[in-house]
Design a protein around this nucleic acid. Structure first.
Length: 596
RNA sequence: GGUCCUGUAGCUCAACUGGAUAGAGCAACUGCCUUCUAAGCAGUAGGUUUCAGGUUCGAGUCCUGACAGGAUCACCA
């Protein structure tokens, strides 16, 4: 039983003994005491006045006195209005610290025996990754790691959109204007090469539209009849028919793109356990349409198209199969849903996809539940807001995007110039320095994108670039490096900071206690981040932890401390903080350096 | 137009799911390097939580209605 549970259990008993009231233990909860009051936990008595039949002050007073006598960890309390502020004894804090410190699996919750798939990244293969993809990838990776820490078995999946009209556009443009250039001959990364022709297609396509409009066609007609568009559509038909030449060009260009993506993924530090390709899955789902018709979940219209009626759930009617029997987007998503389950028997399935698809996933999940899928309740759309630029929305066709590779490069360079300015890394080899710049640059970028609640849209200003001070990745990394330096010195001069002898300590400084309090919250935050699919919870926590540590660091001496027990304790406290930062940051996909 | 999301300090974000005097960072200002890394610490200033009602002991949080921004509502993906 942890600390909060002990106190709550006592309160529960208090209601029985003092007021003869039986209440559910789940109804009782504690909150952190505000800084300006004495105490660590606060119990709000207002909701229980009907049970105590006393005024708020008297109720708090009675409960407080009960705790004092019956709960070993509580040495003091005070009541302000209806708030019962509960203190925890210093011995308890030291004992708790010992438990955390000696727990080899601190930060890893016990196994749930359940399997979850997290699908993220899911790029189109006609263009390179941009800033929006970075948010997606960092979120997906972090959520996966957080789920692992919560005791789930996690499968990271990437559903690659490798077919369709947009790919054909790049292919058509390449045929016309490519002059057989390759990544090697052009010196371009493969994904950038494909993206280049996607942009060229759009440019040339617009020219053709203008020409047709000048000849007297309407805008709509021009869009439909421009030769390049017709050609792309024809190419899609040929691809679906398995045309040898088209398929081989498709394979060639996709292989370039994958080489490019590999480099970017590696740089970003994300990985996958399973790749799905839409070229394999785009025909799936028709059997589910049949099944839905048999079960009466779907219905057929006169023209043969198949629909689902979700108006009883607050949505509309939705098409699931065209009149000509061909699939729409949601048909294949139903199929892929089953495929994932059949492949891995997953209990939960998380889709990391932007919020412009909220409606689509709402529909998809409701359908799968109506069909009675065993995994239906485990479906979750991790919907995140767009990343905006000061100039507005990014459009890849128009080339107004912040390219992922470029941005990462810039961040690393900024980290480099920053570090050189501070001049603290004498003795680093060139390789070590380069590694540090990468850790810091990526740390800043990842933290920046992860610290915000996923569902909120966010603004990214490349001009101002990302800060390295305050609520940032490098601030937390810096706190870790400081501790690493302390631990090096401790080892050097041979201090034993294993947990022996801490019970001799009878005076805890405020900043020591506050640090233990926040360290004690780590697993609670991991749980919350997992339940809410929100890395920002963890990011915020790590910032608070680092801040608390820096306060401790500034206020209290370590190697100048005469009392050897206290000195060892402070080093141990530092070590546990470093371990927590390292573990927590790793759940966000962020590395921490030992020197910076 | 229907549906959904968002609106908190000049800017970027928090607020433990209804609790105390709404907190951090950036930017501004003031201190602190003869002590373990100043990418740090301490402090000052900055608020009608978009607006108007309502629910109750108590509302940034819940309900209603405005206003603003965004997304979505294809036999596209």
């Amino acid at each position: 039983m942890n600390l909060e549970e002990q106190i709550i259990s006592s309160l529960h008993q208090a209601f029985k003994d003092l007021f003869d009231q039986e209440i559910s233990i789940n109804e009782l909860s504690l909150q952190p005491t505000r800084k300006e009051f004495e105490g660590t936990f606060t119990f709000v008595v207002f909701p229980y006045l009907k049970l105590t039949k006393l005024n708020p002050e008297a109720s708090g007073q009675k409960l407080g006195e009960y705790l004092l006598q019956n709960c070993a960890v509580v040495p003091a309390f005070n009541v302000v209005k209806g708030f019962l502020n509960i203190s925890v004894s210093q011995n308890s804090w030291i004992e708790i610290f010992g438990q955390l410190y000696n727990n080899p699996s601190f930060g890893q919750l016990s196994t749930k025996g359940k399997r979850v798939m997290v699908e993220y990244s899911s790029p189109n293969t006609n263009k390179p990754l941009h800033l929006g993809h970075l948010r997606n990838n960092f979120l997906g990776f972090a959520v996966s790691e957080i789920m692992k820490a919560n005791g789930y078995e996690v499968i990271k999946a990437n559903l690659v959109n490798d077919r369709g009209i947009h790919i054909c556009k790049s292919m058509v443009a390449y045929r016309h204007f490519g002059n057989s250039e390759t990544p090697e001959s052009s010196g371009l990364k493969g994904d950038h090469l494909a993206g280049k022709y996607y942009v060229i297609f759009d440019k040339e396509y617009k020219k053709q539209i203008n020409q047709l409009v000048e000849k007297g066609l309407s805008e709509d007609e021009a869009k439909k009849n421009a030769p390049l568009m017709l050609e792309a559509q024809e190419m899609l038909r040929l691809w679906e028919a398995g045309d040898k030449e088209v398929v081989s060009l498709w394979k060639l260009m996709n292989s370039w793109v994958y080489e490019g993506f590999d480099v970017t993924y590696k740089k970003m530090g994300v990985d996958f356990d399973k790749f799905y390709y839409e070229s394999d899955t785009y025909l799936l789902g028709k059997n589910i349409v049949e099944e839905g018709l048999e079960k009466g979940v779907f219905y057929k219209k006169e023209n043969g198209s198949v629909w689902v009626d979700l108006s009883d759930e607050g949505l509309d009617e939705k098409l699931v199969l065209r009149a000509d029997g061909t699939s729409v987007y949601i048909t294949q998503d139903m199929g892929t849903c089953d495929l994932k389950y059949n492949d891995f028997q997953i209990n939960k399935s998380v889709y990391v996809v932007g919020n412009e698809q909220d409606y689509h996933f709402d529909v998809l999940f409701k359908i799968m539940r109506k069909l009675g899928r065993p995994y239906g309740d485990g479906l979750y759309h991790l919907s995140y807001g767009m990343v905006d630029l000061p100039t507005g929305k990014m459009k890849s066709r128009e080339g107004t995007v912040v390219d992922a590779d470029d941005l990462i490069q810039e961040m690393v360079e900024t980290a480099e110039s920053h570090t050189k300015e501070l001049g603290k890394i004498d003795g680093f080899t060139a390789d070590q320095a380069a590694e540090l710049y990468e850790i810091l640059g990526l740390g800043a970028l990842k933290y920046f994108l992860l610290k915000v609640d996923p569902k909120k849209r966010m603004l990214f200003n490349p001009q101002e670039s990302i800060e390295f001070q305050g609520n940032t990745g490098p601030f937390i990394q810096y706190s870790h490096a400081r501790i690493a330096s302390i631990l090096r010195k401790a080892d050097q001069i041979g201090v034993d900071y294993s947990s022996k002898g801490f019970e001799e300590i009878n005076q805890l400084e405020d900043s020591e206690r506050d640090l233990i309090v926040i360290l004690n919250d780590f697993e609670k935050k991991i749980r919350q981040a997992g339940e809410e699919y929100s890395p920002s919870v963890l990011a915020q926590y790590l910032f608070d932890l680092a801040k608390e540590y820096n306060k401790f660091y500034a206020e209290l001496p370590i190697f100048n401390e005469k009392n050897s027990s206290i000195q060892a304790f402070r080093i141990a406290l530092s070590a546990l903080t470093a371990k927590t930062i390292r573990k927590g940051m790793s759940l966000l996909g962020i590395k921490v350096p030992d020197r910076m």
